[in-house]
Amino acid sequence: MHTSASTTPLSPAAVAVERVPHSLQEDLVALFTGCFVIAFGVMLLQQSQAVTGGTAGLAFLLHYALGVKFGVAFFLLNLPFYYLAWRRMGRAMVFKTFCCVALLSVCTDLHPRFVSIAQISPFYAALLGNMLMGLGFIVLFRHKASLGGLNLLALYLQDRHGIRAGHVQMAIDLLIILASTALVPWPSIVASVGGAIVLNLLIAMNHRPNRYLA
């Protein structure tokens, strides 16, 4: 007598999930892509005098207030956070993060040499720029890298305490944007708040513990 095999689907807990680490080539391509996309988003914000949160937001404040180049300010602001990365996130992530910070600093000065935007709405620039930055951050996070600074703090809180990185980043971002009200026109501030919300919602929805296992 023939007995058919059971077709009852296995529960997720019964299925063994094997983690397949990224290769070196995959990491290199992903880190370059993420930084390149984020740098283009930064350029859109600069073109419209919009701001964002995180360490990039602090770099924007220095850029608008003192005329310091964004790339230089961003690189210097990240230096104190490497200690946290070294102690808590591992040497590999410190190295990847350092490379990403340096690459972004270069790319932010590179894009304007090839792209010139004569006119752009602050609201459109803030929306598109932050969407691009959010997508770039997700790429970096999934390859165990970041852009240092406050991103490292957000990732640390998620890994150690289960607090979503996007929620932590959103609270910090809003505080930084409020601090920029003395330097940036109000229409750009309103656009920047909306853009920061979009950016961090993208991260909160797409970068959760145990959702991406590579």
Rank of each mutant, 00 (worst) to 15 (best):
9 P>S: 07
10 L>I: 03
13 A>Y: 05
20 V>H: 08
21 P>Q: 10
26 E>C: 01
26 E>V: 03
29 V>C: 02
35 C>H: 02
35 C>A: 08
38 I>A: 03
44 L>V: 12
46 Q>E: 11
50 A>L: 03
58 L>Q: 07
62 L>H: 04
63 H>Q: 14
67 G>L: 09
68 V>F: 14
69 K>W: 09
69 K>C: 02
70 F>E: 01
70 F>N: 01
74 F>P: 00
76 L>E: 03
77 L>D: 07
81 F>D: 03
82 Y>C: 01
83 Y>T: 11
83 Y>G: 09
83 Y>L: 15
86 W>Y: 15
88 R>N: 14
97 T>M: 00
103 L>Q: 05
107 C>G: 02
108 T>Q: 04
110 L>S: 06
117 I>H: 08
120 I>R: 07
121 S>G: 07
126 A>G: 09
126 A>S: 15
127 L>N: 02
132 L>M: 11
135 L>N: 03
138 I>S: 04
140 L>A: 08
143 H>Q: 06
147 L>Q: 01
147 L>G: 01
150 L>H: 08
165 A>H: 00
169 Q>L: 15
176 I>L: 11
180 S>V: 03
184 V>H: 02
185 P>N: 11
187 P>I: 03
188 S>G: 06
192 S>K: 05
194 G>F: 05
196 A>L: 09
197 I>L: 15
204 A>S: 12
205 M>H: 11
209 P>L: 15
210 N>E: 14
